[in-house]
Design a protein around this nucleic acid. Structure first.
Lengths: 122, 122
DNA sequence: CATATGTTATACTATGGATATAACAATGGA
DNA sequence: TCCATTGTTATATCCATAGTATAACATATG
C-alpha cells in the first residue's frame, strides 16, 4: 500500500489520505479504472476509523476523482470541470505566491520548483 | 484599511487576517517599517475579538513577517530563512500540483498562472 | 498620573475531527 | 437461497481548535 499516514502531523487524517491518493494518481501509482480498497479494509489496514476513510473518499468523490459504486467499490474516475479547477488553483496560488514574494523567492525560482515537481508527475 | 474579512468563509478569521496582511506586503500596500494597528484597534475596526487579531500577529511574528514592540506596536519586518522557505513552498506545491496534474492542467498553464499572479506582486 | 501598549491567564461556547456502534439496502459468491 | 461484503446513514461520545469575554500585569508615552 502506497499510503503513509503521519499521526503526529497537525493535518487531519482524512486530508492526508486525500492528498496521498491524489499524489498516487499524479504519479500513476494508481490509474483511472483502478479500485481502491473498501472503506472498512483500508481503515483496518491503516489502523484508523472507517468513517475517517469514508470522509476522505467522499471528498475525493466531491472533487471528481472517485466514483463510489456498491458493486465495484471505490473506482478512480476523473471527472473535472477544468475552468473551475483553474480558478480554484489561481486562488490558492495567490496566497502561496504572496508569501513566496515576501520571502524574496523569485518568479524564476518558482518556475524551477514547478518544473522539478512536474517531472515526478505525468 | 485594506483588510477584508469574510465571515461566511470556512477559513479561520486569524488565517484570513494573516493572508490579507501577507498579500498587503506582497502588493506593497504596506512596506517594511510600516506599523499595523494595535491588536485592540484592529479588532474593534474589523469587529472581532482582540485575541483573534493577536493570534494572527503571533503567527506572522513566528513566520518572520512582523516584530512586536511594546513601544512601536506591530512593525512589518521581514526576517526569513530562505532555504527553509523554499522547502516549505516545495511541500505545499507538491500537493497543489498533484491535484493540478490530475486535472489535466499542464506545466505551461501553471507557469502562466504564476506569471499572472507575480505581476500583481513586487 | 492617566492612557495605551503587548502579554498572559482563565473560562465559556461552538465547531470539526476522530472514534465507536449500529443498522440498512443492495450486490455477489457459495 | 443464504451469507458475507459493499456503500450509506444515523447516533453518540471525546477531544482539540476557533472565537469570544473579562481580567489583570508590566511597560512605555503623553
Amino acid at each position: 500500500m502506497f499510503i503513509e499516514i503521519d499521526f503526529n502531523s497537525s493535518e487531519a487524517l482524512y486530508i492526508q489520505l486525500r492528498n496521498q491518493i491524489i499524489m498516487g494518481i499524479a504519479t500513476s501509482t494508481i490509474r483511472e479504472g483502478d479500485t481502491l480498497p473498501s472503506v472498512r479494509q483500508l481503515a483496518e489496514n491503516i489502523g484508523i476509523n472507517m468513517h475517517t476513510v469514508n470522509k476522505a473518499y467522499s471528498v475525493l468523490k466531491q472533487e471528481g476523482f472517485l466514483q463510489l459504486d456498491r458493486r465495484k467499490g471505490a473506482v478512480i474516475a476523473i471527472d473535472v470541470n477544468k475552468l473551475q479547477a483553474v480558478e480554484e488553483m489561481r486562488e490558492q496560488l495567490r496566497v502561496l505566491l504572496a508569501k513566496a514574494s515576501c520571502q524574496n523567492i523569485s518568479r524564476e525560482e518558482v518556475h524551477q520548483l514547478v518544473d522539478e515537481i512536474y517531472e515526478e508527475y505525468m
